[in-house]
């Protein structure tokens, strides 16, 4: 079942990683690490991908979806090309992150956790990014923008649309 000749839908690097895990102690303990790899490559966790992880790692599908749904970091829906994540940590909150959330919401016309129809933007909030001293911060894909104000939001969106 887990032979090397079986055709997989997951990328070969991930399959290789899972096979390495199987050789170690407590292979099932690497489930979260594997899901990180899957999300890292595809941006989210789709059902076929999770089913294959279960198959290859030899853990029940229910366990995989149980873990995937428990942790906030894992996304079960695809996100936009620009993933906008507004930090809602305490320092950002104290310095007006809620106004930034509101600005993105009204500019993009989408709610939290949603993606625009053109698939360009998705909006989410994150727990503290630990960049509190530069609060409020917004993370767009991997880049952190510091000391953001609600007024800068339309400009940020325009930059992304052009870039």
């Amino acid at each position: 079942m887990t032979g090397t000749d079986v055709k997989t839908i997951l990328h070969k690097d991930i399959v290789k990683f899972i096979r390495e895990c199987l050789k170690k102690d407590h292979p099932d303990s690497y489930l979260i690490a594997v899901l990180h790899k899957v999300q890292g490559r595809y941006g989210w966790l789709s059902e076929p991908h999770m089913a294959e992880v279960a198959q290859l790692l030899q853990v029940p599908t229910a366990t995989v979806s149980g873990v995937a749904t428990f942790y906030h970091f894992f996304r079960l829906r695809p996100r936009g090309r620009f993933a906008i994540s507004v930090c809602l940590g305490t320092a950002c909150f104290v310095r007006g992150a809620d106004e930034i959330v509101e600005a993105f919401r009204s500019e993009l016309g989408i709610g939290m956790g949603e993606t625009t129809q053109d698939g360009l933007f998705s909006l989410e909030t994150s727990r503290c990014l630990g960049v509190c001293a530069l609060a409020p911060v917004v993370m767009i894909n991997e880049k952190v923008y510091s000391k953001v104000t609600a007024k800068q939001v339309p400009e940020l969106i325009r930059q992304m649309q052009e870039g």
Binding site: H26, I32, H36, V67, F70, Y71, H72, F73
Partner: peptide, 26 residues
């Protein structure tokens, strides 16, 4: 190194251990 996945409760030691074991961190 074992990575968390965004669950605050995993800072609690028993939850943290379940998470290292690859389970739901309860």
């Amino acid at each position: 190194i074992r990575l968390g996945a965004g669950a605050f409760v995993c800072g609690e030691e028993t939850a943290l251990m379940y998470s290292i074991e690859g389970k739901r961190g309860q």
